[in-house]
Design a protein around this nucleic acid. Sequence first.
RNA 1: GUCCCCGUCGUCUAGAGGCCCAGGACGCUGGCCUUUCAAGCCGGUAACACGGGUUCGAAUCCCGUCGGGGACACCA
Length: 476
Amino acid sequence: MASAPRVRFAPSPTGYLHIGGARTALFNYLYARRFGGTFVLRIEDTDLERSTPESLKAILDGLKWLDIDWDEGPDKGGPYPPYFQTQRLDTYRQHAEQLIAAGKAYRCYCTQEEIRERRALAEKENRAYKYEGTCRERTDAPEGRPYVVRLKMPSQEGSVSFDDLVLGKITKEYSDLDDWVMLRGDGIPLYNFGCVIDDHLMDITLVARGQEHVNSTFPQLMLYQALGWQPPQFAHLPLILGPDREKLSKRKHKEADVMLHKANGILPEALLNFVIRLGWSHGNDEIISRQQMIEWFDFKDVGTTSGVWNPDKLLWLNQQYLKTLPSSDIAGRLAPFLAEKGHPLPAGDRRLEAFVLAFRERARTLEEMAAMAVPYLKQGVTLDEKAAAKHLTADSLKLVQQVRDEVATLPEWSVAGLDAVIKAVSERAGVGMGKVAQPIRVAVTGNTVSPGIGETLLLMGKEEALRRLDAALARG
RNA sequence: GUCCCCGUCGUCUAGAGGCCCAGGACGCUGGCCUUUCAAGCCGGUAACACGGGUUCGAAUCCCGUCGGGGACACCA
């Protein structure tokens, strides 16, 4: 492969961006970036029933959110247009005609009902259905009757094989193949046909796709052969499995939806990092930057075994990114989650970054972080009765009173100053800092869990903090 | 059912014949730190599916068994 690689991601716009699709897109993208190649996005919208513009938009939005950008395709154009299969119908028809003229394909007039019946029969008799070639040698061309175009498989013994970049050599006997349909009655191509024609015409050098496609590679190879074309290289990626160990599917697994993770407060960096480690590895590296991905990725390091979705690890990774990405960056991403909870803060509001700093070691998602921040944005607080009973005793309220008085006179409402007061009060009382900090924490947050006490008070703001302390004091 | 692929800790994986009585990560778990919760640090738990070969030597090669998944459309 002397020239720069051309790879593609070819989704069908029949739903949102699937997590498996996202990984396939990522692998293709990384390969193109690493080897100075081109990443093509082609839309396989030949399923007229199910393809929708909304789905197309959802897929494009998903890729953009993940920051996987394509070099050629929708919104971009490129030297091999069009990039939508429904706009390439003439091309498919021409190739089909050419194959028919060469005697390598034929018109089949069997009706769908007939085929369906025969298939049902085969199923009943527990054998695999193969089209029996009824129209294979047919020479007449009944006027006005609809037909599909089938590719002729060799009648002799033999086999096709290819060298998969991840699976190695795979072979299939001709006898296991049948004369498959390339063109429907309405002239719309089927997947195996459109895919081959386009991959070739778009000069795709390497096709990387999910392992569910290995079996369709054989009929495709037969088409390359019939056309006298050189097939591209293939790399079949291991599947991503749900918790039930079945292929992650939109119907059964909600986590298959890329954008659901966005809504859950997962960062795209973390999602990609998680997903790349499903089936690919670089030694013991776990946290891998985009730059490293590009530097290291190769299909030869892709594994052969399917991987099970592991939400715990995704969450862990997400927190790693929450902790290490610039806090100002995270702050901007946190805002929509707060707005969602009824607390829209203006962009650049200093509290946003303060929340990030306070909660990124405690929250695993932006969603959790926002939930943690809400009590600091509301007025007033509801005390957890158990916590109050334990920590807001008559004795401890005396300490709370001292803290309240001293803190109110502080020239500056800062972590250092606030912590100093807590420390001073506890020393004076001859008790550990916990004896003072916990009652304050409960008074101010309603509960026993929060960031450091100085930080908590700071986040609360002087006015609201004093108000809550007074409320707790009034209680006793 | 037929065909195809796969089989290392619960999960993701490192491992390309001796460096492995198998390493890392998540999870779980013990401890340290500590004003709570986290985070962090130190430690523990747990796997080469099974049976035959090949070899001085196998997680690594071969065969079989079992197990899992995928594909069998005028869907992609």
